[in-house]
Amino acid sequence: MITKIILAILALVAAPLLGALITGVDRRITAWLQSRYGPPILQPIYDVLKLLGKEPMVTNTWQALCAYVYIVGAALSVVLLFTGSDLLLIFFVLTVGAVFLVMGALASPSPYSQIGGQRELLQMLAYEPLLILVFAAIAMVTGSFKVSAVFEQTRPLLYDLPLMYIVLGYALTIKLRKSPFDISASAHAHQELVRGVYTEYSGPFLAMIEIAHWYEVILVLGLCALFWSTSVVGMVVLVAVTYLAEIIVDNVTARLTWRFMLKSAVGMGLVLTLVNMLWLYAQ
């Protein structure tokens, strides 16, 4: 119990900082890939500090509420992950945050934020089933949806579920809104939707969303780490390689449309899942 509380507090405090650093490294590496010099590693933190100091501006008060609930949902899901809770539960709590993010976007009459919200919903529609399938596959191997059960495995999940890892990667690209699926909101705003789902959040509320995003990055990487739960080194290497691959994919693809995303996410996800499951049964 005590360890769980310590882990929870660790998750609450360390996760966003780590997430910020990872985001900073991400921006730096992206810059290098584009032959640029790039911002300082701490840039995301500066950004958030500045945003916190901005004058609050909303189109209605719901947005403020939604931004805060979003961060609560994201933080709570990380805490649940760290305390070894139920995978599906983590997923559902994550949904709470995502739903409120969209509701906040829809609460503004701006068509950009509206369309961003709608698209974010479509992104959720694309990645949610994939995540559930990944969790189900993990549960197939471990016999339980509990995160703690994963750590009782004697060999990495990746051996049994290589294709599910790709499915997870697919889902995470959509979740983290990385190219080619930066459809509802793009980190750099050269998009038809301006900032999409973020358009109407500003100042401190945007800061909350950024911090929530850091939590999400950690959550996402934590989920990846589950696939090599047997050793810490393995986890770190797997996560690093995955994230690097994610950044490279981000930089070598054009943004695709949501129609394509829906079709390919569901299609690819299902095919890979089925193949992986057949393989699992065959074993």
């Binding site: 209605n60 719901w62 949904t95 739903v99 969209v102 509701m103 906040g104 976007a105 829809l106 609460a107 503004s108 009459p109 509206q114 919200g117 709608q118 919903l121 479509l122 959720m124 529609l125 694309a126 949610e128 089933p129 559930i132």
Partner: peptide, 17 residues
């Protein structure tokens, strides 16, 4: 369940707009 979230969420959201 993914689809379910889609139609509930947008309904809740738009009432706030």
């Amino acid at each position: 369940s993914g689809v379910t979230v889609l139609f509930w969420c947008r309904w809740a959201g738009l009432m706030l707009g």
